[in-house]
Design a protein around this nucleic acid. Structure first.
Lengths: 186, 186
DNA sequence: TCTTCATGAGACAAATATGTCTCATTTGAG
DNA sequence: CTCAAATGAGACATATTTGTCTCATGAAGA
């Protein structure tokens, strides 16, 4: 088949996210089977396990960036930007989870790029604080972690068939803002 | 050494949570090393990988139940019970994570017991709804998932040294309630 | 002191995973 | 139809993991 499957490579990456986000030590055979592909074919595209992991990491960051940039480009405020970013990230929680769980120690470049992403999220959150969306006495790190946790929660709800994409994103945003916008009284 | 280490078994279980919650496919050698124990010793306590996994699952549920029961016994309301349970679960997020990530397919009994725990959380949440703590128009499943997600988030904050146990639990509860107590408008 | 027993170290075989190759098949392009 | 490229199947050697055993050590209890 010359090019029936222009997406063989993509299928392998998708399978990688599915499999490794659940079990980062899974065998390549599992990934190949999930992709509906022979183990040899996987090796034709990615010579070694390490190479596959690296490709997955880059693809994850690429896709997340792309999706967020697209979603955010017309936002009128940082708050709206975060809201749109959340909705864009939800269906890519696969990728987010992979990046969060995979030990990136081996690739300093990837680790660095990932850290940079995290920093940017924090920066946007600080701006949203200025817009009054989040209380100033709540640590930005907590807001960022909650943002990711609730994005993942939304993904789980959709995966389990308990909510549509929009419903889940609304729930996540509602949980996040109405909670975090109230100053902590103690 | 006759019984210097009464805790060898516990050390292995603890190591199992640490290692498997990050990578459910990790080798037993990694677990043994983390426990500061030889691989042979691990096998003396748990003959096979499956046996270890099973012991971990039961121990996780046992410990979580114990901790929650202790914390909740003097609670005056379901809401207070949930608040106390959250604080009790935070340091055991290890166990929670293990149960959430490990494929329990092989042990119907464990899977069943785990499901039962989830149901009980949902039941308590429904009671807290009656007490006015959570809005009725928000799905209990969402509240339960958020509860676990934010508990885990609190654990991450503590682990990274960004908050004390109490601070993190307060943040999680504040995020959860002040957000979820507001009825979703549309 | 002498005994007992949990342990660590490590040998070992079997199972599993990894990476490389080869070969036959399929299918789209020409 | 013919050809070239991509693929699946699977053989193969190597590496890693698993589970079993044995042996020497050292500390607790007699």
């Amino acid at each position: 088949m010359k090019k029936i499957k222009l997406d063989t490579k993509d299928a392998i990456l998708q399978a990688g996210f599915d499999v490794f986000s659940k079990n980062s030590g899974a065998s390549l055979d599992k990934v190949a089977k999930r992709a509906g592909v022979g183990r040899a074919t996987l090796h034709r595209y990615y010579a070694s396990r390490d190479e596959l992991i690296e490709a997955l990491a880059w693809a994850a960051m690429e896709e997340l960036n792309q999706a967020v940039d697209d979603a955010v480009k017309d936002a009128q405020s940082y708050t709206e930007g975060l809201r749109l970013a959340l909705e864009a990230i939800v269906p890519l929680s696969n990728r987010q989870l992979f990046l969060a769980n995979e030990p990136l120690d081996k690739n300093p470049k990837i680790a660095e790029a990932y850290q940079k992403e995290q920093q940017e999220l924090i920066a946007d959150i600080e701006q949203a604080k200025r817009e009054g969306t989040f209380a100033k006495d709540i640590p930005s790190k907590w807001i960022a972690e909650s943002f990711e946790a609730l994005t993942y929660t939304a993904w789980v709800m959709i995966k389990d068939g308990d909510a549509t994409h929009k419903q889940a994103a609304d729930l996540a945003w509602h949980t996040l803002t109405s909670g975090l916008s109230t100053p902590m009284s103690k």
